[in-house]
């Protein structure tokens, strides 16, 4: 009896959390009706591969958003790692491994720098990461002037591998979610949420704010580097401007997935759903024969609706808490 009530209460408190899932299901269903091929395993596997870079970027972005910050340098890190991998990777296991590790280290280093500077100098994350983003994109241009480069075949094959119809990216996705479920309840995970809800009281409660901030931004940089590496395998070339699109879409994905920009609430599972929603929507518009000229309009409206809904939900919640 008591359990039932708490479940019902939980549902009425968290109905917002279901919205992104419902949205994704509706989009997939509508697409299935318009074109039954989209429900086939091979199509979904392809979609999973194509969305995975954005998923990684959005996951990284989420850690920073949870602290109440922003990471615009995600795009820059993707550019750098994409270019490095496309230019330097040779077709041997050693070289592939070496450059993957170098890219990840670069991502983490840039992230740590962001986190450290933002916490130490009290610069606004928006402007600090905007500067890092510019520097990173410039460096990417120095590594590779125009789109191109050569990506080793074995690298591409390894990352887009299929086990039957099951793509490697789906397996990684599941592993990532499991890791997150563990991470969420670790000390660092809790500290990230605490800082996002109220930095001052987090500090007063003895939470190591600097260390946690550096960790959050480093995670963002690390995931951005992974996104860049994965993009290299999927697109099979490097581009010094590849990351530009990822900045706003990674934030959008996280926000659609229910992560609050103010920090302190949300999580990466929502961001993963959000990333898939964004990627599926573009396809849906094609299947609905919406002219590509209008597609950005639809995406914008969708984003506003998703966010307005969660803003409305928060107001309701506040009102409820205020009364009760």
């Amino acid at each position: 009896m008591e359990n039932k009530r708490t479940f019902k209460q939980k549902l009425s408190d968290n109905w917002l959390a279901i919205v992104p899932y419902a949205m994704l299901i509706i989009i997939v269903a509508v697409m299935g009706i318009l074109n039954t091929n989209t429900l086939k395993a091979s199509y979904i596997a392809n979609k999973c591969d194509n969305s995975f870079s954005l998923v990684l970027a959005a996951v990284g972005q989420t850690f920073v958003l949870l602290t109440g910050g922003f990471d615009l340098s995600v795009g820059g890190v993707i550019c750098i790692t994409n270019c490095l991998a496309a230019v330097h990777m040779q077709d041997s296991a050693g070289s592939i491994l070496l450059w993957s590790v170098i890219c990840i280290i670069i991502g983490i280093a840039i992230g740590m720098f962001n986190g450290f500077v933002i916490e130490k100098t009290k610069l606004q994350p928006f402007i600090a990461t905007l500067a890092t983003q510019s520097v990173c994109m410039g460096l990417a241009l120095l590594i590779l002037k125009v789109d191109g480069g050569k990506v080793p075949r074995s690298y591409m094959k390894a990352l887009t591998k299929r086990f039957g119809d099951l793509p490697l990216s789906a397996i990684l996705l599941v592993i990532m979610i499991l890791l997150w479920l563990y991470f969420k309840n670790t000390k660092t995970g809790m500290n990230i949420y605490a800082i996002g809800s109220n930095k001052k009281s987090a500090r007063l409660n003895g939470i190591p704010v600097l260390r946690t901030m550096v960790t959050a931004y480093a995670l963002s940089g690390c995931f951005a580097a992974l996104a860049g590496l994965y993009r290299t395998a999927v697109v099979a070339s490097g581009s010094p401007t590849a990351g530009g699109d990822f900045v706003m879409s990674s934030i959008s994905a996280a926000v659609i997935g229910g992560t609050a920009l103010a920090g302190g609430s949300g999580g990466i599972i929502g961001s993963i759903i959000g990333a898939f929603i964004l990627r599926y929507i573009t396809d849906l518009l094609v299947f609905m024969k919406v002219s590509s000229y209008w597609s950005s309009l639809v995406q914008g409206v969708l984003l506003i609706l998703a966010v307005a809904l969660s803003a409305y939900g928060n107001t309701l919640k506040k009102r409820k808490e205020g009364v009760g």
Partner: peptide
């Protein structure tokens, strides 16, 4: 309106409206 009355975060609201205006003009 979206920011003050609906309560959407400014960055998201204006980012979304930016692509809406883009869609309007391009469309």
């Amino acid at each position: 309106f979206g920011i003050a009355y609906v309560g959407i975060a400014p960055v998201i609201m204006t980012m979304a409206s930016n692509i809406i205006f883009q869609g309007l003009l391009v469309g």
